[in-house]
Design a protein around this nucleic acid. Structure first.
Lengths: 132, 132
DNA sequence: CAGAATCCGAGCCGATACTG
DNA sequence: CAGTATCGGCTCGGATTCTG
């Protein structure tokens, strides 16, 4: 057993003896971040803070409904902040919190890995498809 | 803009000008890994290779159906290998591939982050709930 | 033992219309 | 501008049953 494997497996699972249905720490994060849009939104906010409709235009193919939900979830978890500027018309600005920024670093590790192995994954899928 | 933010945002989005509906490299990975069980399965296989029913017992609250699907997806993407040992009764062994092992390292970065910020996220959720 | 087939229900996602 | 309300479709996870 390598160091990396042992280290990675430690916190991936709930503590031994606890109810496995209880989401472990990782699941608690993944369940929120691993949806259709969260990473995309965080990615855009990593470049600059944005107002609602500006982000809506930037992403392009997300409905207002879903964008609203995604933003609220990210705000709820503390990844982003929501600032209302009193004016007419109203303006609401979304930005990464300090925690949100800190998440970009581990995220980058995954991105780099995905980037490095994307071709291998694609090839693996093709090979799998040809086999069956 | 910090280095980390700029670096993280680069590959998070599809190339400018391309169809945003096309999944970008990250989405291609997250869409597979970010489901209910994949990380859990990879976590168990990080400890040792396992046969089907052994893993079923270890995880406990996953149906055979879903475990089967999860394993096939991970195999399709090249994270795990599936080895059939001809015998009666048949035995099928699942193990991490080299690529699967290499993924444990970036994964660990996320795990460490999740571990370090889990309390903050929980508190953020509580605070959010009290506000509304 | 290692799955496949079938069916069901919940939740996510989305389009559209409407509001302060 | 920044959302909410309503409704529908579709995918995912799950329970159950059956098979080589």
């Amino acid at each position: 057993m390598s160091e990396a494997m042992a280290a990675a497996s430690v916190r991936l699972l709930p503590p031994v003896g606890t109810d496995l249905n209880q989401p472990c720490v990782v699941r608690d994060v993944i369940d929120r971040i691993g949806d259709r849009w969260s990473l995309l939104v965080l990615g855009h906010l990593a470049e600059s803070s944005l107002r609602f409709n500006a982000m809506h235009r930037k992403i392009g193919d997300i409905s207002k409904q879903v964008l609203s939900r995604t933003l609220r979830h990210l705000e709820e978890d503390g990844f982003i902040s929501r600032t209302v500027h009193q004016s007419t018309p109203p303006q609401v600005e979304y930005a990464l919190t300090e925690m949100g920024v800190s998440f970009l670093q581990p995220l980058k590790a995954v991105l780099d890995w995905a980037d490095a192995h994307h071709d291998a994954i694609t090839q693996s899928r093709d090979k799998f498809a040809r086999r069956y």
